[in-house]
Design a protein around this nucleic acid. Structure first.
Length: 244
DNA sequence: ATGGGCACCTGGCTGC
DNA sequence: TGCAGCCAGGTGCCCA
């Protein structure tokens, strides 16, 4: 550990707890990485600017390389996070019961996230559709980029009150979310500035974005200039002609 | 229960 | 050139 002050301070003595334990599986729930060890689970969140790299243990640390998980093959899993919005937690119980994970909604690519579920989840909600999509008690994994992109593909306005969509809209939106996320995963995610995977390679989905960070540029479907505004302190991008 | 706003933090870019 | 101001892949928590 070089810097314990992340979003929450890294627990004292964690090194001692982890030492000697074999890594048994790597899983994920929402945006939490779950490293299953022999006596518990290491829960890692990358925040907005975090990344993990698999490197030779002797690789000199760069600024903002906050901790290493040193493996017995001479490599290290190295956590890098300039903004320190990420976090690291240890739990010996089932990770799905951890306070940060216990109340999470379905995974977007799970079959339980379907039109019927989203339609019911939106009933009575006055919140704007885009903000609802980013609520982890409705669905997880849909961040600021993919919320704008999915709404574009579903032809729905980010400002529309969530409770005012039809069952048909819910079906279109669910399909759009699943498509956007699947396509992005397929090409390694969206690198805007500094995201890299464990091998250090960026993702290429930024080349496939229809609206995100395209303010004033022509819509790729209708040529109308893309617009930007703020919802819940986050930038939203949309095409006022394609999306209603 | 719901929704709004703030907080955490650093770096890069813009414009005066 | 220097510096203030603004913006950025997230999400937990407090308050009305």
């Amino acid at each position: 550990m070089r810097e314990r002050r992340l979003r929450w301070p890294i627990a004292r003595g964690l090194e001692r707890t982890l030492a000697g334990q074999r890594l048994q599986a790597v899983e994920r729930r929402a945006k939490y990485l779950l490293l299953r060890l022999e006596r518990g689970t290491l829960i890692v969140h990358l925040g907005m600017s975090g990344s993990v790299r698999l490197l030779a243990e002797a690789t000199p640390p760069r600024p903002h390389d906050h901790w290493d998980l040193i493996l017995e093959n001479g490599q290290a899993l190295r956590f890098h996070d300039p903004r320190r919005f990420g976090s690291l937690h240890w739990t010996e119980g089932p990770p799905e019961s951890h306070p940060l994970l216990a109340a999470l909604a379905p995974e977007p690519l799970d079959e339980s996230f379907d039109a019927d579920y989203l339609f019911r989840a939106t009933r009575g909600r006055k919140l704007a559709l885009k903000q609802l999509l980013m609520n982890s008690r409705i669905v997880v994994g849909v961040g600021n980029i993919y919320a704008s992109e999915a709404l574009f593909r579903a032809h729905l306005s980010p400002r529309r009150a969530a409770g005012r969509i039809t069952r048909i809209h819910a079906a279109a939106l669910v399909a759009a979310i699943k498509a956007v996320l699947s396509e992005a995963i397929e090409i390694g995610g969206t690198t805007l500035r500094d995201y890299v995977n464990a091998e250090g390679t960026p993702g290429y989905f930024s080349q496939k974005l229809f609206v995100y960070e395209r303010a004033r540029q022509p819509c790729r479907l209708c040529r109308t200039p893309i617009k930007q505004f703020t919802q819940g302190q986050r930038s939203t991008y949309w095409c006022p002609s394609c999306q209603r």
